[in-house]
Simulated assay, not measured.
Amino acid sequence: MPLLLQMRWLISLCVLVPLLVQAADPMPSWYNGTSRQAIEQFVSAVTTEGSKEYVPTAERIAVFDNDGTLWSEQPIYFEVQFALDEVKRLAPQHPEWKTQQPFKAVLDGDQKALAASGMDGLLKIVAATHSGVSTEAFIAQAQRWLATAVHPKTKKPYTEMVFQPMLELLEYLRANGFKTYIVSGGEVAFMRAFAEEVYGIPPEQVIGTTLASRFDDNKGTLTIQRLPKLLHNDDGPGKPVSIDTVIGRRPILAFGNSDGDLQMLQWTKAGSGKRFAGLVHHTDARREWAYDRDSKVGRLDKALIAANKEGWTVVDMAREWRRVYPFDSIED
C-alpha cells in the first residue's frame, strides 16, 4: 500500500475508533464510577443464564420515581406549576375563586398566602384543576401545556428537563429484558400525557396518584369522567401498595430521590434474591440544583440515612454524570 494511503487509513482509523466506542457505550452520559459499576454488575448478575443470581425475564421489574429521579423538580414540582397555570386559565369559569383561598392566592400571585395553605391547599388546587373533564380531555390539555410552557430557569420545555443519564439507564435495562415502570406521587393521567414519548414507558406502566372517576354515557358518547376526590395517594407507603395492586410482582430494581421513595426502596430490597436500590442525589448546583435534607421540594433525609446504612447505591449527580440534560454537552 502506498505510504500516502497508509497515512490516510491510519488517520481515518484514529477518528473512527473513538466514535465506534462511544456508539457502543449504552450509557455515555455516566462516568465509569461506583454507581455505574454497581448498576452494570447487578444487571450482569441477574441476566446471566446459569448464574445462581439469574432472574427470568418476566420477573425483571424495575420501578422509577418521576419527580427528581427522571426529571428535575425545582423550584417547584412541574405538575404543581401546571396546576397553578390551570387555575389562571380556568378562573373566568369560577368567579368565586377571586375571594376563595387558595385560589385567590394563586390569582393574586400571593406566594405567602399560597404557602400558608399548605398541603391541604395544594390538594384543593389539584382536585379543581385535574377534574371535571374526561380523562382524554385532561391529557390533551396537559399535552397542550407541555408543548408551550417553559422552565423559569432554563427557558426549556419541561419535557427537555429530563435526565439524560436516566434515559440511558431506562434503555439499558429494557435492552436487558427489564420492564420499566414509573411509580410516582404525580397524578397518573398527567404523567401519561408525556411518559411514552419522553421515557419510552407506555401508559399501562405508569403508576401514580389517582382521582376517583366514573363511566359516563351521554347519549352514546362514552367517557371516563374525572372527579374532584382523591382515591389513592401514591407517595411514601402508598407506593408499595400500588406496586402490589397494579404490577403484582415485587420489583428487583428501584430508583428514587427523596423520602417519598423510601418505602418503595425498602419493599424492593426486602424480597429474596439479588436486588438493587438506588437514589439520585442532587449535588450539582452548577448544572442543576444541590439539595437534600433542608429542601421543601424532594426532601432527602431518612432515605439517605437508610441508603448509607443498608449499602444502597447513591448517585452523586455532580461527580457521576457527564451531562445532566439532553441539551447539555458531554463533559470529560
Rank of each mutant, 00 (worst) to 15 (best):
R89K: 12
L169D: 09
E204G: 03
N257H: 08
A195K: 07
N308L: 04
D235L: 05
G271Y: 07
V162E: 01
F327V: 07
L13P: 11
S272R: 10
A254T: 07
E187Y: 10
D294Q: 15
T34C: 12
V21K: 06
L169M: 14
V126F: 15
E168G: 06
V46S: 01
D244K: 14
T245L: 04
T209W: 02
D234F: 00
S258M: 05
R286W: 01
S35G: 06
A175Q: 14
L114K: 11
G118E: 12
W312D: 12
P102A: 09
R226G: 01
F78E: 12
L230P: 06
K219F: 10
W289S: 11
A128N: 10
V280M: 10
Q81A: 13
L227M: 08
G236Q: 06
L146Q: 10
G118N: 13
L90D: 10
K88A: 09
N308A: 09
K104M: 09
I11Y: 14
G208L: 03
H282F: 01
T99S: 14
L114A: 09
R299L: 07
A116D: 14
G109K: 04
G273Q: 05
I247H: 08
A175M: 07
Y31D: 05
M119Q: 15
A105D: 07
M27Y: 01
A189E: 10
Y77S: 07
W312R: 10
I61F: 11
L122D: 13
Y54H: 14
R249F: 00
V246H: 10
W312H: 11
L211V: 09
S44A: 09
L122R: 12
E96W: 06
W289D: 13
T48I: 07
L10E: 14
L227C: 04
R287G: 06
L230N: 00
Q111K: 15
I252H: 08
Y54M: 09
L19G: 02
D120G: 15
S35D: 02
T180V: 15
T283N: 06
M317K: 10
R322E: 11
T159S: 08
S12H: 05
S131C: 11
V106W: 03
S295H: 04
P165L: 01
E310N: 15
S35H: 01
T57L: 02
S131Y: 05
Y172M: 02
P56T: 04
V297W: 04
A105R: 08
I39Q: 04
A137S: 14
K52Y: 08
S51R: 01
L227R: 00
A306V: 13
P92V: 04
F42N: 13
M27S: 02
N308V: 08
K155C: 07
D120W: 13
K98Y: 08
A307N: 06
Q266F: 03
C14N: 08
L167E: 03
L300E: 10
I39F: 09
L230Q: 04
P152T: 05
Y199L: 10
A140F: 01
L279P: 06
R299Q: 15
T209G: 06
T223S: 13
G220R: 01
L231T: 05
Y158V: 07
S134M: 00
D261T: 04
A105H: 07
R36Y: 01
